[in-house]
Simulated assay, not measured.
Amino acid sequence: MSQAIPRSVEELRELTVGIGRGEEGGLALGGKAHTVLAKLVERPEEVAVRSITELAATLGVSPSTLTRLATRLGYAGFVDFQNVFRDSLAERHRHFYSQQAERLVAGASARAQGGNGGRSPEVDTVVQLARESINNVEGFLAQLSASELQGAAKALAEAPRVRIHGLRQFSALASFLSYGLGLIRADVGLLDAQGLGMAEGLAQLQPGDVVIATSVAPYTRSVVDAALAAARAGLVVIAITDTRASPLVQPAQHAFFIPHESSFFSNSMGAYLVFCEGLLNLVATHLGASALQALERRERFITELEIETG
């Protein structure tokens, strides 16, 4: 391969996005290999401390698949690839490996013994989901990019118009973002708020306007199609999705990756809401006084119309 071999987790993340966008010259990975790479760079702690056999089992692939992926990327083997994760995390956590190993061993021991601290099965179910959401939050925090956050917040604050698009379960997240942004700035809404279709919604926008697209595996085809069409029309696309192998990465100028691994019977939304609250706060900070004025104006109408009680 002609490009330099990545020697940090961040460089590997950038490479993963570049491959998805077709920006890495002659380097190409099959869909399965690209998905595996995306999952690896989103769980650096596990890659650093687990064996190739354990990682392969977690990802549902064979150890030889991981070895082939490492050599395809230019590494001498999987250990050479794994050392990138170990070296990067050692810079941040001097005692990371022992702490991570202790946590993995303790978790395995607790599961083997069926220990739940004396909680009822009902409470234990909620506790398990909460802890999984915490792990997902830690997962996206470990890979946040300051420049991506700054760029997205600036675009959302300064664009003439903002539209948000998410369907099925992620229609709820789209509505939450639309409501939150609408509290602090004007001309925000859902892309298909009136049910007139994606073509009508996109036709109302101009280059420089922003579309937030959100979907996770299994991805909603129409959300991906809308994001691609928006990018071709010169709109700024911000993707809120799960992995760097997501089809939303290619059209997005800014992309954020939120894990949703959980025992919940559908996609876990907890970490997505936490991320979106943080993004909204950044937009409000960028807007400054105008955000405060928008909130105060809304409060005056709430008082005048006697909307709230108690």
Rank of each mutant, 00 (worst) to 15 (best):
G195L: 04
R168Q: 09
G30H: 03
S147V: 04
R7M: 14
R185K: 00
A152C: 05
S98E: 06
V137C: 03
R163H: 06
F170V: 04
V84K: 04
F170H: 09
F301C: 02
L141V: 11
S98D: 01
V162C: 02
E299N: 03
S2L: 13
S109H: 14
A255F: 03
R21S: 06
R86E: 09
S145K: 12
T241S: 09
L280H: 07
P121C: 04
T71K: 07
A186V: 07
L149C: 08
R232Q: 11
F81P: 04
Q253S: 14
A271K: 01
P218F: 07
A157K: 00
A101V: 09
E299S: 00
T53A: 12
E304M: 05
V79E: 15
T125W: 12
L104W: 05
A233T: 06
E200I: 11
L29M: 12
P6A: 10
A48T: 07
A4V: 10
V137L: 02
L287R: 01
V61E: 00
S215D: 05
G234P: 00
D187N: 07
A227W: 11
R50P: 02
F81Q: 05
Y272R: 13
V211K: 00
K32Q: 07
G139P: 06
G25H: 12
S175G: 11
L29Q: 12
L202H: 01
A108M: 12
S88A: 07
I212H: 15
Q204T: 14
H254C: 00
L279C: 11
F275Y: 10
A271G: 05
E158P: 03
N136G: 15
G182D: 01
P121M: 05
V61M: 05
A157P: 01
L273M: 01
D225K: 06
G278D: 00
D192S: 03
V274S: 04
S215T: 08
P160Y: 00
R244T: 09
Y219Q: 02
S64E: 08
G234W: 07
I258M: 08
G18D: 07
G18K: 07
C276H: 07
E45R: 13
P218G: 08
F265L: 11
V84E: 02
S88Y: 08
Q128N: 14
L196M: 14
S246L: 15
L183M: 09
L29A: 11
E14N: 13
I212E: 15
P259S: 03
